[in-house]
Design a protein around this nucleic acid. Structure first.
Length: 420
RNA sequence: GCAGCUGUCGCCAAGUGGUUAAGGCUCCGGGUUGUGGUUCCGGCAUUCGUGGGUUCAAGUCCCAUCAGCUGCCCCA
């Protein structure tokens, strides 16, 4: 029989790694809770049309990266490539705009993109994201940025830089794009193949071309800020002064743009300087997307949000030699299974925060002791025939090596609780 | 979608065409009569990602395929 392996670009989260995942997700939950965000769980697959409308017909995601299939009812379905579209769809479908605004939501879960796997890049990957719908900003934008930073700080991530830019409103961007096209047109025979293609499809992207020769040519390219109308200008200004006043460090990156169509005004990314992620240095990215809800047929709704790639963060956490908070563990050594199981259950009820384990193989005393020690248990209970016959439980603290007999379970559990 | 590198036990690995595929860690069984991870014995790949081919002979060479890594593209 040949072994079946996990599909390309997917991976199993197993053993110690799942501890890190839980730690990460717990940290997210706490941060969102503290800011009054509610969790939203949307389907993992949606009508294909949702993504082609939300993400953009000519984006790479829609064109070549979606997991699309026809279901048995002949409907075209797609495994979600990102989280925002589903949230917006749900917002419209359930008339969430009738709630107090803004609606503040967060989500966590798998996303799917048919890409070439690399470090920090998978076909099934996971994002934690937050969206706020119904507020114009700039305060909600600042709140979202702040929350993103807070989240990453809370898990002990350092060496992160907030990069920020504004891509203005629709008008400003249209004016800029046409000016940029004119500028780029002058070099159409000198730039790289990719840029030639980008010139027509997504001229903004030329600006972050990685070819030095191209960069040289683009040095004198027009800047988007010079094309801002009054609205774009004032919103951008408010964000910048807000960040300064809040003492949030940032770098303005005029070349920061977006691959997804629905963004406008302020966009931002958190990047790591760690070389652990190779080329995938962006760990969290987001911005304002005032047009998405109306693209999808809802009433025009200002909104902003961000998403962060969990796999990428996990890589960084591993590098940080993360000290996960371990809870106390107790191991019962016994020569009879049933009394040991009963005792384990009683202890679990009495001390829910304690991990209680035992040896299901009923190995010899020596072996069980070894197992307990190898597991790094804080406590060992000796519950062999001798103890059971005398009606006592012998408790040992493995750190202090002190032992104590207990005749009463409540007394024993109180003792442990006191020393947790 | 394009290009380069890699693939031997759960993990780390030796092996460079020639008998039964080193070693270490982990794990499992057992001894040292119930208290510190010790020690001692023993076990753990008919098989080298998979499938073909070359050869008297292949983990070692060739081809294909799958997967991983890296760069491009794009993105979280």
């Amino acid at each position: 029989m040949n072994k079946i392996q996990a599909p390309r670009g997917t991976h199993d989260v197993i053993l110690e790694e799942s501890d890190i995942w839980q730690y990460l997700e717990q940290a997210g939950r706490e941060v969102f809770k503290s800011a009054g965000f509610k969790e939203i769980r949307t389907p993992i697959f949606e009508a294909t049309e949702l993504f082609s409308r939300a993400v953009g017909e000519d984006s790479d995601i829609v064109n070549k990266e979606m997991y699309t299939f026809t279901d048995r009812g002949d409907r075209s379905m797609t495994l979600r490539p990102e989280g925002t579209a589903g949230v917006a769809r749900s917002y419209i479908e359930h008339n969430l705009d009738r709630n107090q605004k803004p609606i503040k939501l967060w989500y966590q879960g798998p996303m799917f993109r048919y890409e070439r796997p690399q470090t920090g890049r998978y076909r099934q990957f996971h994002q934690i994201g937050a969206e706020a719908l119904g507020s114009d900003g700039p305060y909600i934008d600042l709140e979202m940025i702040n929350l993103g930073i807070k989240f990453l700080n809370s898990i002990g991530l350092a060496n992160l830089t907030l990069c920020i830019n504004s891509i203005g409103n629709k008008n400003s961007r249209a004016n800029y794009t046409s000016a940029l096209k004119d500028f780029l047109g002058k070099y159409s025979d000198q730039v790289c193949e990719d840029c030639k293609r980008r010139m027509t499809q997504n001229p903004l992207r030329c600006l972050d071309c990685k070819i030095p020769a191209d960069q040289e040519l683009y040095k004198n390219a027009p800047l988007i800020q010079d094309f801002f109308d009054e609205e774009s200008k004032s919103i951008w200004q408010e964000i910048l002064t807000g960040l300064k006043t809040l003492n949030i460090n940032f770098e303005v990156d005029p070349k920061l743009v977006r691959g997804l169509d629905y963004y406008n005004h302020c966009v931002f990314e958190m990047k790591t300087s760690s070389n652990k992620l190779a080329n995938q240095s962006t760990v969290l990215a987001g911005g304002r997307y005032d047009n998405l809800v109306s693209y999808l047929g809802g009433a025009p709704t200002p909104a902003c949000g961000w998403a962060c790639g969990q796999e990428r963060i996990i890589e960084l956490l591993k590098e940080n030699h993360l000290q996960l908070v371990k809870n106390s563990k107790l191991f019962i050594i016994s020569d009879d299974g049933i009394p040991a199981l009963r005792l384990a259950n009683q202890l679990r009820d009495l001390i829910p925060e304690l991990t209680v384990e035992l040896d299901y193989e009923l190995s010899k005393f020596k072996k069980q002791l070894e197992k307990a020690l190898k597991r790094n248990c804080d406590w060992i209970i000796f519950f062999m025939a001798d103890e059971r016959n005398s009606g006592t439980i012998k408790l040992k603290n493995t750190k202090t090596t002190q032992e104590q007999d207990f005749g009463d379970l409540i007394e024993l559990s109180d003792f442990i609780k006191k020393h947790l």
